[in-house]
């Protein structure tokens, strides 16, 4: 009997933690999204209707989506290329790896301070532009803000992706690559037909983690630009933050359910695609 219980016992602690801090609140939020604020009565889909017709919410959603669409592929390709280089040049790679990992060790607040120094109206970059006689740019209050956020996200998370890619690459049986060499495949052909398909499962994890971490870039956006940043970096969490201040729990609940459903669907879709794709004849 104990043998059946044992696995459950092992995961019990984290299961309890997940239950208390994630699952139960999620169920609560789901219920709350159908409840009228103040009266506590059943609201039907009113909350959802209100949220979906809220212009700020839609801007935040589309900004977040745009951020994911730009960042995730960019991050994947960039980190893959770097990790392949490190993988094939292990000696030089060791130094590079450390270099790419440093940003991860820097606390967000310190990093943000650095970004401010760089991109402030009277920051370093504008200083350089000025000394060159060029026009200064209002980095944080124009469309540039989005790209600065992309840059900071990539800079901060590149090392993590590289490590994950390296783990995926090193799980590929080296003799498969050697077989491809003797079969006459060029290094590009090997990468496309042999290495990447073999590292497929690793790649899935990396994509999912990148999507999730790109959701968290709010910290940087918030700390650099404050509560009401340029419209281009107004993210989902900004609006949640504002609703929270106004105690608009109904909207928060509906908004959370919508964004979590989108995220879950995105991951399931990816998974479907992954199981079917990548197989050659």
């Amino acid at each position: 009997m104990l043998s059946k219980k044992r696995p459950v016992l092992f995961i019990a602690i984290s299961l309890i933690g997940t239950g208390i801090f994630l699952l139960i609140p999620y169920v609560y939020v789901f219920i709350a999204s159908f409840v009228k604020r103040g009266t506590g009565g059943f609201a039907g889909f009113d909350n959802y209707r209100e949220v979906l017709s809220n212009e700020a919410f839609m801007t935040a959603m589309s900004n977040t989506a745009r951020f994911i669409v730009v960042c995730v592929p960019l991050m994947l390709v960039l980190s893959l290329l770097i990790s392949i280089y490190i993988y094939e040049n292990p000696r030089l790679g060791k130094m590079l790896k450390t270099g790419f990992l440093v940003p991860m060790a820097i606390p967000v607040t310190s990093a943000v301070l650095m970004w401010r120094f760089l991109f402030d109206d009277k920051g370093i970059i504008n200083g350089i532009l000025e000394s060159l006689g060029a026009d200064t740019v209002n980095w944080m209050n124009t469309g540039w803000a989005f790209w600065i956020l992309v840059l900071s996200y990539i800079w901060k998370n590149l090392g993590y992706s590289i490590i994950l890619w390296l783990a995926a690459l090193s799980s590929v049986n080296p003799s498969i690559n050697e077989a491809a060499k003797t079969d006459g495949a060029s290094s590009f052909q090997r990468l496309i037909h042999v290495t990447l398909p073999a590292a497929k499962n690793g790649a899935f994890v990396i994509i999912v983690l990148s999507v999730l971490s790109s959701f968290k870039v709010f910290r940087e956006a918030y700390l650099v630009a404050g509560e009401y940043p340029d419209q281009s970096i107004y993210l989902v969490q900004h609006i949640f933050n504002n609703w929270f201040r106004n105690l608009e729990m109904d909207k928060i609940a509906a908004g959370s359910v919508i964004s979590s459903v989108i995220l879950i669907m995105l991951i399931l879709l990816l998974q479907r695609f992954w199981e079917k794709g990548g197989e050659e004849r």
């Binding site: 003799s175 498969i176 003797t182 079969d183 006459g184 037909h193 990548g278 197989e279 004849r281």
Partner: peptide
Amino acid sequence: VDTKDRDIAMVFQNYALYENMTVFG
């Protein structure tokens, strides 16, 4: 001369087949 340009073929102890392809592939 690079392995791929040597015009040799090799069979490995652990078969080293490409799992993502069929036998034909």
